[in-house]
Design a protein around this nucleic acid. Structure first.
Length: 305
DNA sequence: GGGTAATGAATAA
DNA sequence: TATTCCTTACCCA
């Protein structure tokens, strides 16, 4: 579930429960055995997120770079501190897996499986397990997972566009404006381009464009400066909500009923995302789905004319 | 039990 | 533009 907000939340979780601790690193699945051995037993010094990338800095200037890709996920067990006042601890995002573990234990009728035990046995294909005395973090299905040096971290960072969290400055906004407004590329593609702006994925892309009432096919250079600045500021705004709540809430400012429903059900959460064929919440026109660079793009052809 | 989609991006061509 | 990689959840039977 990784757009920028998730990655920032995960980095915050590591900051809370891992930074300053000696960390045992292993690869239960085996595919990251060498990398895990490099950092095993080192103390975590810093946790950073930029866009969809996370960097964990250990002693000796060794960095673990993680990119979750489309289905990577971290699960936390044990001591999992709340990271914002508005959300449960991140461990709750791992709750489905926890429930599945409970089901498995029940169906297998193995009373000796102690679900409260620490550390819990790894379930599934755990590429990396990071563990302190009190907390376990399991990573599955990442697109990138590697131990690198500071120079390589800098190389990765150099090709990332501004992230509103690390870069909420007028200069960052100007950089975003300039890179959008010089390109003939459809704005719907530009928003997904991590070298132009960090952290936006397929959900936020569709929702940002709808909120701006912008046609996704509009060439970047044809979007007015005011509109581009509004896009940046809306991303700043939505990302903050996402980090605080742990949800991609884009229908804020609506009635309390609508907002409550959005928090409760995914199907009531978005303006256009995954609403192909359903009536637009504003004008009742059928929401359209089309493939743009092989990703599903949802938009309202009437409001985003 | 099988098939598919999924909040992503690198690479080849 | 097409292919490849990574893993799980959900839907259907």
């Amino acid at each position: 579930m990784p757009e920028g907000h998730s990655v920032h939340r995960i980095a915050l979780q590591f900051e809370r429960d891992f930074v300053g601790h000696r960390v045992a690193a292993s690869s239960p699945q085996g595919r990251f055995a060498e990398g895990a051995a490099e950092i095993d037993g080192l103390t975590l010094v810093e946790a950073r997120a930029v866009g969809k990338q996370m960097f964990l800095r250990f002693e000796n200037d060794l960095w673990l770079r993680i990119h979750l890709g489309i289905y990577g996920a971290w699960d936390f067990f044990g001591t999992v501190s709340p990271i914002t006042s508005e959300s449960e601890a991140l461990g709750s995002m791992g709750a489905p897996r926890l429930r599945r573990a409970v089901r498995m234990a029940e169906t297998e009728n193995t009373k000796d499986v102690d679900l409260e035990s620490f550390p819990p046995p790894p379930v599934g294909a755990v590429r990396v397990r990071l563990m302190t005395d009190a907390t376990v973090a399991d990573l599955r299905g990442p697109t990138a997972c590697e131990v690198i040096g500071a120079d390589q971290v800098a190389t990765v960072l150099a090709r990332l566009g501004p992230d509103p969290v690390t870069d909420n400055t007028p200069e960052a906004e100007d950089r975003f404006v300039a890179s959008i407004r010089t390109k003939p590329t459809p704005v719907g593609l530009l928003l997904m381009d991590q070298s132009i702006v960090s952290g936006i994925g397929n959900v936020y892309r569709a929702e940002l464009l709808f909120r701006a009432r912008l046609n996704p096919h509009t060439p970047g250079k044809n979007v007015s400066e005011d509109q581009v600045r509004a896009l940046w500021r809306d991303w700043v705004y939505l990302l903050d909500i996402g980090i605080r709540t742990g949800m991609m809430l884009t229908m804020d400012g609506q009635t309390p009923e609508v907002e409550a429903a959005a928090r409760l059900n995914r199907s009531d959460r978005y303006w256009v995302y995954k609403r192909e064929g359903l009536p637009c919440r504003v004008c009742s026109t059928h929401i359209v789905m089309e493939l743009m660079a092989s990703r599903k793009l949802y938009w309202c052809p009437n409001d985003q004319a």
